[in-house]
Design a protein around this nucleic acid. Structure first.
Length: 420
DNA sequence: TCTGGGGTCCTAGGACCC
DNA sequence: TCTGGGGTCCTAGGACCC
Protein backbone atom coordinates (compact mmCIF):
# COMPACT_ATOMS: atom_id res chain seq x y z
CA UNK A 1 0.00 0.00 0.00
CA UNK A 2 1.08 3.50 -0.76
CA UNK A 3 2.09 6.17 1.69
CA UNK A 4 1.07 9.65 0.62
CA UNK A 5 2.00 12.93 2.27
CA UNK A 6 0.15 16.15 1.60
CA UNK A 7 2.32 19.23 2.10
CA UNK A 8 0.30 22.42 2.35
CA UNK A 9 1.67 25.92 2.90
CA UNK A 10 0.06 27.78 5.79
CA UNK A 11 -1.83 30.95 4.78
CA UNK A 12 0.30 30.86 1.66
CA UNK A 13 -0.18 34.33 0.17
CA UNK A 14 0.14 35.96 3.60
CA UNK A 15 3.28 33.97 4.35
CA UNK A 16 4.77 35.22 1.06
CA UNK A 17 4.07 38.81 2.10
CA UNK A 18 5.72 38.19 5.45
CA UNK A 19 8.88 36.81 3.84
CA UNK A 20 10.24 40.23 2.99
CA UNK A 21 8.57 42.07 5.84
CA UNK A 22 9.58 40.38 9.10
CA UNK A 23 7.84 43.19 10.97
CA UNK A 24 4.56 41.59 9.85
CA UNK A 25 5.19 38.48 11.92
CA UNK A 26 3.64 40.22 14.87
CA UNK A 27 0.61 41.53 12.99
CA UNK A 28 -2.51 39.96 11.46
CA UNK A 29 -2.10 39.78 7.67
CA UNK A 30 -4.64 39.41 4.88
CA UNK A 31 -4.45 39.26 1.08
CA UNK A 32 -7.30 40.42 -1.15
CA UNK A 33 -8.67 39.08 -4.43
CA UNK A 34 -8.49 41.10 -7.64
CA UNK A 35 -10.01 44.56 -7.46
CA UNK A 36 -9.23 44.45 -3.74
CA UNK A 37 -12.61 42.74 -3.41
CA UNK A 38 -12.50 40.11 -0.71
CA UNK A 39 -10.06 38.19 1.46
CA UNK A 40 -8.53 35.12 -0.16
CA UNK A 41 -5.77 34.48 2.37
CA UNK A 42 -5.69 35.14 6.10
CA UNK A 43 -3.20 34.44 8.87
CA UNK A 44 -4.42 32.80 12.08
CA UNK A 45 -4.42 36.19 13.81
CA UNK A 46 -6.81 37.53 11.18
CA UNK A 47 -9.03 34.44 11.37
CA UNK A 48 -9.16 34.94 15.14
CA UNK A 49 -10.60 38.41 14.54
CA UNK A 50 -13.55 36.71 12.83
CA UNK A 51 -12.70 37.64 9.25
CA UNK A 52 -14.02 34.86 7.02
CA UNK A 53 -12.66 33.46 3.77
CA UNK A 54 -14.20 35.47 0.93
CA UNK A 55 -15.26 38.28 3.25
CA UNK A 56 -15.63 41.57 1.33
CA UNK A 57 -12.93 43.98 2.42
CA UNK A 58 -15.14 47.06 2.59
CA UNK A 59 -17.29 45.38 5.25
CA UNK A 60 -14.43 44.89 7.69
CA UNK A 61 -12.27 47.89 6.87
CA UNK A 62 -12.85 49.47 10.26
CA UNK A 63 -12.11 46.27 12.11
CA UNK A 64 -8.86 45.95 10.16
CA UNK A 65 -7.80 49.49 10.94
CA UNK A 66 -8.52 49.11 14.63
CA UNK A 67 -6.53 45.89 14.88
CA UNK A 68 -3.56 47.04 12.83
CA UNK A 69 -4.15 44.41 10.13
CA UNK A 70 -1.68 44.48 7.23
CA UNK A 71 -3.85 44.19 4.11
CA UNK A 72 -2.41 43.53 0.64
CA UNK A 73 -3.61 43.43 -2.94
CA UNK A 74 -2.82 40.08 -4.55
CA UNK A 75 0.73 39.99 -5.90
CA UNK A 76 0.55 36.84 -8.01
CA UNK A 77 3.95 37.11 -9.65
CA UNK A 78 5.47 36.96 -6.16
CA UNK A 79 3.34 34.01 -5.09
CA UNK A 80 4.05 31.87 -8.16
CA UNK A 81 7.74 32.52 -7.82
CA UNK A 82 7.82 31.42 -4.17
CA UNK A 83 5.59 28.47 -5.05
CA UNK A 84 8.11 27.31 -7.66
CA UNK A 85 10.85 27.35 -5.04
CA UNK A 86 8.78 25.36 -2.55
CA UNK A 87 7.86 22.76 -5.19
CA UNK A 88 11.45 22.43 -6.35
CA UNK A 89 12.59 21.80 -2.79
CA UNK A 90 9.86 19.21 -2.27
CA UNK A 91 10.94 17.38 -5.41
CA UNK A 92 14.25 16.66 -3.67
CA UNK A 93 12.47 14.60 -1.03
CA UNK A 94 10.32 12.20 -3.07
CA UNK A 95 10.61 10.44 -6.43
CA UNK A 96 7.02 11.32 -7.28
CA UNK A 97 5.45 14.68 -6.53
CA UNK A 98 2.07 15.91 -7.72
CA UNK A 99 1.80 19.68 -7.62
CA UNK A 100 -1.86 19.97 -6.78
CA UNK A 101 -2.17 23.73 -6.51
CA UNK A 102 -0.04 26.80 -5.98
CA UNK A 103 0.38 25.97 -2.29
CA UNK A 104 0.07 22.19 -1.94
CA UNK A 105 1.62 19.01 -3.23
CA UNK A 106 1.17 15.27 -2.75
CA UNK A 107 4.38 13.27 -2.20
CA UNK A 108 4.70 9.52 -2.66
CA UNK A 109 6.65 8.40 0.40
CA UNK A 110 6.04 4.68 0.02
CA UNK A 111 8.93 2.72 1.53
CA UNK A 112 10.31 5.57 3.61
CA UNK A 113 11.30 4.50 7.12
CA UNK A 114 9.90 6.56 9.95
CA UNK A 115 7.76 8.73 7.70
CA UNK A 116 6.70 11.10 10.41
CA UNK A 117 10.27 12.04 11.27
CA UNK A 118 11.07 12.38 7.58
CA UNK A 119 8.18 14.82 7.18
CA UNK A 120 9.32 16.86 10.15
CA UNK A 121 12.64 17.17 8.37
CA UNK A 122 10.92 18.30 5.16
CA UNK A 123 9.00 20.92 7.12
CA UNK A 124 12.20 22.13 8.72
CA UNK A 125 14.02 22.43 5.40
CA UNK A 126 11.21 24.36 3.69
CA UNK A 127 11.10 26.73 6.62
CA UNK A 128 14.84 27.12 6.75
CA UNK A 129 15.55 27.46 3.00
CA UNK A 130 12.51 29.37 1.86
CA UNK A 131 10.88 30.70 4.98
CA UNK A 132 7.39 29.37 4.33
CA UNK A 133 5.66 27.42 7.13
CA UNK A 134 3.93 24.21 6.00
CA UNK A 135 1.69 21.53 7.46
CA UNK A 136 2.01 17.89 6.47
CA UNK A 137 -0.58 15.11 6.60
CA UNK A 138 0.37 11.46 6.09
CA UNK A 139 -1.96 8.59 5.08
CA UNK A 140 -2.62 5.80 2.58
CA UNK A 141 -4.94 7.83 0.34
CA UNK A 142 -5.20 11.45 -0.74
CA UNK A 143 -8.53 11.96 0.99
CA UNK A 144 -7.12 10.73 4.31
CA UNK A 145 -3.93 12.74 3.80
CA UNK A 146 -6.14 15.82 3.43
CA UNK A 147 -7.80 15.05 6.74
CA UNK A 148 -4.46 14.40 8.42
CA UNK A 149 -3.20 17.70 7.07
CA UNK A 150 -6.20 19.54 8.42
CA UNK A 151 -5.60 18.02 11.86
CA UNK A 152 -1.92 18.97 11.72
CA UNK A 153 -2.83 22.54 10.87
CA UNK A 154 -5.53 23.03 13.50
CA UNK A 155 -3.93 21.35 16.52
CA UNK A 156 -0.73 22.97 17.74
CA UNK A 157 0.32 19.97 19.80
CA UNK A 158 1.29 18.12 16.61
CA UNK A 159 3.70 20.85 15.49
CA UNK A 160 2.54 20.73 11.89
CA UNK A 161 2.78 17.02 11.12
CA UNK A 162 0.08 14.37 11.64
CA UNK A 163 -0.10 10.78 10.43
CA UNK A 164 -3.19 8.65 9.84
CA UNK A 165 -1.18 5.49 9.23
CA UNK A 166 -1.77 4.21 12.76
CA UNK A 167 -5.25 2.89 13.36
CA UNK A 168 -5.78 4.74 16.63
CA UNK A 169 -4.77 8.06 15.12
CA UNK A 170 -6.96 7.44 12.13
CA UNK A 171 -10.08 6.55 14.09
CA UNK A 172 -9.59 9.57 16.31
CA UNK A 173 -9.09 11.89 13.31
CA UNK A 174 -12.13 10.57 11.46
CA UNK A 175 -14.28 10.97 14.54
CA UNK A 176 -13.07 14.52 15.00
CA UNK A 177 -13.62 15.52 11.36
CA UNK A 178 -17.05 16.75 10.35
CA UNK A 179 -18.30 15.72 6.90
CA UNK A 180 -18.05 19.20 5.45
CA UNK A 181 -14.30 19.06 6.03
CA UNK A 182 -13.89 16.01 3.82
CA UNK A 183 -12.22 16.69 0.48
CA UNK A 184 -14.92 16.41 -2.20
CA UNK A 185 -17.86 16.95 0.15
CA UNK A 186 -19.22 20.44 -0.37
CA UNK A 187 -22.26 22.32 0.81
CA UNK A 188 -24.91 20.35 -1.08
CA UNK A 189 -23.56 16.96 -0.09
CA UNK A 190 -23.20 18.06 3.53
CA UNK A 191 -26.89 18.94 3.61
CA UNK A 192 -27.85 15.55 2.22
CA UNK A 193 -25.57 13.69 4.63
CA UNK A 194 -27.03 15.55 7.57
CA UNK A 195 -30.48 14.47 6.46
CA UNK A 196 -29.52 10.84 6.90
CA UNK A 197 -27.87 11.73 10.19
CA UNK A 198 -24.27 11.46 9.10
CA UNK A 199 -22.19 14.12 10.81
CA UNK A 200 -18.63 12.86 11.02
CA UNK A 201 -16.15 11.41 8.56
CA UNK A 202 -16.20 8.20 10.55
CA UNK A 203 -19.97 7.83 10.22
CA UNK A 204 -19.69 8.46 6.48
CA UNK A 205 -16.95 5.88 6.11
CA UNK A 206 -18.99 3.25 7.96
CA UNK A 207 -22.26 3.90 6.14
CA UNK A 208 -23.10 0.72 4.24
CA UNK A 209 -25.87 1.55 1.74
CA UNK A 210 -23.78 1.56 -1.43
CA UNK A 211 -26.54 2.13 -3.96
CA UNK A 212 -27.81 5.14 -2.05
CA UNK A 213 -24.30 6.63 -1.91
CA UNK A 214 -23.89 6.12 -5.66
CA UNK A 215 -27.29 7.56 -6.44
CA UNK A 216 -27.07 10.59 -4.17
CA UNK A 217 -23.39 11.46 -4.36
CA UNK A 218 -22.44 9.91 -7.72
CA UNK A 219 -19.25 8.09 -8.49
CA UNK A 220 -17.07 10.68 -6.79
CA UNK A 221 -18.93 10.31 -3.50
CA UNK A 222 -18.49 6.56 -3.56
CA UNK A 223 -14.80 6.88 -4.29
CA UNK A 224 -14.39 9.40 -1.49
CA UNK A 225 -15.99 6.92 0.89
CA UNK A 226 -13.62 4.19 -0.28
CA UNK A 227 -10.64 6.46 0.22
CA UNK A 228 -11.67 6.94 3.86
CA UNK A 229 -11.44 3.14 4.10
CA UNK A 230 -7.84 3.27 2.85
CA UNK A 231 -8.80 2.07 -0.62
CA UNK A 232 -6.88 4.17 -3.11
CA UNK A 233 -9.13 5.70 -5.80
CA UNK A 234 -7.37 8.95 -6.63
CA UNK A 235 -3.78 8.20 -7.51
CA UNK A 236 -1.09 10.80 -7.96
CA UNK A 237 -1.12 12.42 -11.40
CA UNK A 238 2.41 13.24 -12.36
CA UNK A 239 2.50 14.74 -15.82
CA UNK A 240 1.16 18.22 -16.27
CA UNK A 241 -1.96 17.66 -18.31
CA UNK A 242 -3.11 20.03 -20.99
CA UNK A 243 -6.06 22.17 -20.05
CA UNK A 244 -9.43 21.36 -21.58
CA UNK A 245 -10.72 24.88 -21.34
CA UNK A 246 -9.22 28.27 -20.59
CA UNK A 247 -11.14 31.08 -18.95
CA UNK A 248 -10.20 34.72 -18.75
CA UNK A 249 -12.38 37.21 -16.95
CA UNK A 250 -12.37 40.21 -14.63
CA UNK A 251 -14.78 42.21 -12.60
CA UNK A 252 -14.53 45.80 -13.82
CA UNK A 253 -12.83 48.37 -11.64
CA UNK A 254 -15.65 50.82 -12.39
CA UNK A 255 -19.17 50.40 -13.77
CA UNK A 256 -19.34 50.07 -17.55
CA UNK A 257 -22.25 51.27 -19.66
CA UNK A 258 -20.81 51.54 -23.16
CA UNK A 259 -20.20 48.87 -25.75
CA UNK A 260 -16.71 50.11 -26.51
CA UNK A 261 -15.45 49.25 -23.05
CA UNK A 262 -16.99 45.78 -23.26
CA UNK A 263 -15.33 45.21 -26.62
CA UNK A 264 -11.97 46.32 -25.25
CA UNK A 265 -12.26 44.16 -22.18
CA UNK A 266 -13.12 40.95 -24.05
CA UNK A 267 -10.31 41.66 -26.51
CA UNK A 268 -7.93 41.64 -23.56
CA UNK A 269 -9.40 38.45 -22.10
CA UNK A 270 -9.28 36.74 -25.48
CA UNK A 271 -5.62 37.74 -25.85
CA UNK A 272 -4.71 36.31 -22.45
CA UNK A 273 -6.58 33.08 -23.14
CA UNK A 274 -4.95 32.64 -26.56
CA UNK A 275 -1.49 33.14 -25.10
CA UNK A 276 -2.08 30.31 -22.65
CA UNK A 277 -3.58 28.22 -25.44
CA UNK A 278 -0.50 28.60 -27.62
CA UNK A 279 1.75 27.93 -24.67
CA UNK A 280 0.31 24.43 -24.36
CA UNK A 281 0.41 24.01 -28.15
CA UNK A 282 -3.32 23.64 -28.61
CA UNK A 283 -5.92 25.25 -30.81
CA UNK A 284 -9.55 25.80 -29.88
CA UNK A 285 -12.79 25.50 -31.79
CA UNK A 286 -15.22 27.10 -29.38
CA UNK A 287 -15.38 30.65 -28.05
CA UNK A 288 -17.88 31.60 -25.39
CA UNK A 289 -18.51 35.08 -24.04
CA UNK A 290 -20.77 36.36 -21.31
CA UNK A 291 -21.51 39.69 -19.70
CA UNK A 292 -23.42 40.55 -16.58
CA UNK A 293 -24.47 43.37 -14.30
CA UNK A 294 -23.65 43.52 -10.58
CA UNK A 295 -25.89 41.04 -8.72
CA UNK A 296 -25.09 42.71 -5.39
CA UNK A 297 -26.38 46.04 -6.56
CA UNK A 298 -30.00 47.06 -6.60
CA UNK A 299 -30.22 47.85 -10.31
CA UNK A 300 -31.94 46.15 -13.21
CA UNK A 301 -30.08 42.89 -13.83
CA UNK A 302 -28.90 41.48 -17.12
CA UNK A 303 -26.95 38.35 -17.95
CA UNK A 304 -26.36 37.07 -21.43
CA UNK A 305 -24.15 34.40 -22.91
CA UNK A 306 -23.42 33.10 -26.38
CA UNK A 307 -20.78 31.09 -28.13
CA UNK A 308 -19.36 30.45 -31.56
CA UNK A 309 -17.95 27.19 -32.83
CA UNK A 310 -15.39 27.28 -35.61
CA UNK A 311 -15.07 24.51 -38.16
CA UNK A 312 -11.30 24.42 -37.85
CA UNK A 313 -9.26 25.02 -34.73
CA UNK A 314 -7.34 28.26 -34.22
CA UNK A 315 -5.11 29.92 -31.65
CA UNK A 316 -4.85 33.18 -33.53
CA UNK A 317 -5.59 36.04 -31.15
CA UNK A 318 -7.04 38.14 -33.99
CA UNK A 319 -9.49 35.43 -34.89
CA UNK A 320 -10.68 34.84 -31.32
CA UNK A 321 -11.05 38.56 -30.73
CA UNK A 322 -13.13 38.82 -33.88
CA UNK A 323 -15.55 36.13 -32.74
CA UNK A 324 -15.72 37.58 -29.21
CA UNK A 325 -16.65 40.92 -30.71
CA UNK A 326 -19.38 39.39 -32.83
CA UNK A 327 -20.83 37.84 -29.70
CA UNK A 328 -20.68 41.14 -27.79
CA UNK A 329 -22.47 42.74 -30.74
CA UNK A 330 -25.29 40.27 -30.24
CA UNK A 331 -25.40 40.43 -26.46
CA UNK A 332 -25.05 44.14 -25.82
CA UNK A 333 -28.12 46.01 -24.60
CA UNK A 334 -27.96 49.69 -23.91
CA UNK A 335 -28.84 51.05 -20.49
CA UNK A 336 -27.41 48.35 -18.26
CA UNK A 337 -24.59 48.86 -15.80
CA UNK A 338 -22.14 46.08 -16.67
CA UNK A 339 -19.87 44.68 -13.98
CA UNK A 340 -18.12 41.69 -15.45
CA UNK A 341 -17.33 39.97 -18.72
CA UNK A 342 -15.83 36.56 -19.46
CA UNK A 343 -14.17 34.74 -22.34
CA UNK A 344 -13.95 30.96 -22.30
CA UNK A 345 -12.28 28.93 -25.04
CA UNK A 346 -12.73 25.17 -25.29
CA UNK A 347 -12.94 22.18 -27.66
CA UNK A 348 -9.18 21.95 -27.91
CA UNK A 349 -7.11 19.99 -30.38
CA UNK A 350 -3.38 19.56 -30.71
CA UNK A 351 -1.80 22.25 -32.82
CA UNK A 352 -0.20 19.78 -35.20
CA UNK A 353 -3.34 17.71 -35.64
CA UNK A 354 -5.35 20.63 -36.87
CA UNK A 355 -7.19 19.81 -40.00
CA UNK A 356 -7.76 22.52 -42.48
CA UNK A 357 -11.36 23.33 -43.03
CA UNK A 358 -12.81 23.17 -46.50
CA UNK A 359 -15.14 26.01 -45.83
CA UNK A 360 -13.19 28.53 -43.88
CA UNK A 361 -10.43 30.60 -45.29
CA UNK A 362 -7.14 29.95 -43.68
CA UNK A 363 -3.73 31.51 -43.57
CA UNK A 364 -2.50 29.15 -40.94
CA UNK A 365 1.18 29.25 -41.75
CA UNK A 366 1.41 33.02 -41.60
CA UNK A 367 -0.82 33.11 -38.56
CA UNK A 368 1.35 30.73 -36.58
CA UNK A 369 4.49 32.60 -37.54
CA UNK A 370 3.03 35.92 -36.52
CA UNK A 371 1.76 34.64 -33.17
CA UNK A 372 5.15 33.12 -32.45
CA UNK A 373 6.92 36.41 -33.03
CA UNK A 374 4.46 38.23 -30.76
CA UNK A 375 4.81 35.61 -28.02
CA UNK A 376 8.60 35.73 -28.23
CA UNK A 377 8.69 39.49 -27.90
CA UNK A 378 6.23 39.54 -25.01
CA UNK A 379 8.17 36.84 -23.22
CA UNK A 380 11.38 38.78 -23.60
CA UNK A 381 10.20 42.34 -23.13
CA UNK A 382 7.36 41.76 -20.72
CA UNK A 383 3.65 41.03 -21.01
CA UNK A 384 1.57 43.20 -23.37
CA UNK A 385 4.58 44.77 -25.06
CA UNK A 386 2.81 43.92 -28.29
CA UNK A 387 -0.95 43.65 -28.28
CA UNK A 388 -3.87 44.13 -30.57
CA UNK A 389 -5.19 47.65 -30.91
CA UNK A 390 -8.56 46.09 -30.13
CA UNK A 391 -7.42 45.85 -26.50
CA UNK A 392 -7.48 49.64 -26.23
CA UNK A 393 -4.68 51.92 -25.17
CA UNK A 394 -5.87 53.82 -22.14
CA UNK A 395 -8.76 51.86 -20.75
CA UNK A 396 -9.03 53.26 -17.27
CA UNK A 397 -12.77 52.76 -17.15
CA UNK A 398 -12.87 49.02 -16.59
CA UNK A 399 -9.29 48.26 -15.50
CA UNK A 400 -9.00 46.62 -12.11
CA UNK A 401 -8.00 48.41 -8.99
CA UNK A 402 -5.06 47.35 -6.86
CA UNK A 403 -4.07 49.93 -4.35
CA UNK A 404 -2.41 47.85 -1.67
CA UNK A 405 0.14 45.91 -3.65
CA UNK A 406 3.52 44.95 -2.23
CA UNK A 407 6.73 45.13 -4.24
CA UNK A 408 7.64 42.55 -6.84
CA UNK A 409 10.52 41.53 -4.59
CA UNK A 410 11.72 38.67 -6.73
CA UNK A 411 10.38 39.36 -10.22
CA UNK A 412 11.07 43.02 -10.90
CA UNK A 413 14.60 44.38 -11.12
CA UNK A 414 13.50 47.76 -9.84
CA UNK A 415 11.73 46.30 -6.86
CA UNK A 416 14.30 43.98 -5.33
CA UNK A 417 14.54 44.20 -1.55
CA UNK A 418 17.31 46.52 -0.38
CA UNK A 419 19.83 45.47 2.25
CA UNK A 420 21.21 48.46 4.04
C1' DT B 1 -17.89 53.41 -3.71
C1' DC B 2 -16.65 48.68 -2.54
C1' DT B 3 -18.56 41.37 -3.01
C1' DG B 4 -12.36 37.09 -7.13
C1' DG B 5 -10.72 34.02 -10.84
C1' DG B 6 -9.78 29.58 -12.97
C1' DG B 7 -10.41 24.93 -13.27
C1' DT B 8 -12.29 19.49 -13.37
C1' DC B 9 -15.51 15.70 -13.28
C1' DC B 10 -20.04 13.52 -13.55
C1' DT B 11 -24.80 12.82 -15.08
C1' DA B 12 -29.01 13.38 -17.56
C1' DG B 13 -31.06 14.14 -21.62
C1' DG B 14 -31.35 15.28 -26.51
C1' DA B 15 -29.95 14.29 -31.31
C1' DC B 16 -28.98 10.98 -34.33
C1' DC B 17 -28.25 6.35 -36.34
C1' DC B 18 -29.52 1.49 -37.52
C1' DT C 1 -52.68 6.58 -35.54
C1' DC C 2 -49.58 4.06 -33.08
C1' DT C 3 -45.42 1.78 -32.34
C1' DG C 4 -39.07 -0.97 -30.50
C1' DG C 5 -34.71 -1.46 -28.88
C1' DG C 6 -30.06 -0.37 -28.69
C1' DG C 7 -26.21 2.37 -29.22
C1' DT C 8 -23.00 6.66 -29.57
C1' DC C 9 -21.91 11.34 -29.19
C1' DC C 10 -22.44 15.89 -27.53
C1' DT C 11 -23.85 19.49 -24.37
C1' DA C 12 -25.69 21.95 -20.36
C1' DG C 13 -25.74 22.25 -15.75
C1' DG C 14 -24.55 20.89 -11.08
C1' DA C 15 -21.12 20.20 -7.66
C1' DC C 16 -16.75 20.62 -6.16
C1' DC C 17 -11.85 22.26 -5.72
C1' DC C 18 -8.01 25.90 -4.75
Amino acid sequence: MKVIALVDCNSFYCSCERLFRPDLNERPVGVLSNNDGCFVSRTNELKALGVKMGEPYFKVKDLCRKNNVAVFSANFSLYTNISDRVMFTLSQFAPEVEIYSVDEAFLDLTGVKNVEQYCRHIKYVIDRHIGIPVSIGIARTKTLAKIANHIAKKNEQFHGVFSCLEKNNREWALEKTSVDNIWGIGRQSTKKLHMINIKTAKQFRDYKNNSLIQKTFTKVGRQTQDELREILCFDLTLEIEKKKEIISSRTFGAPVFDKKSLLESVANYASTACEKLREQKSVCRKVEVWVRTNPFKDVEQYYAVDSYTMLAGSSDTRRIIKHSWEIIDKLYRQGFEYKKALVRISSFQDQKETQLSLFEETDQVQSEALMKVIDDINRREGPHTIKSLACGVNNKAWKMRQTLKSQRYVTGWNELPKVK
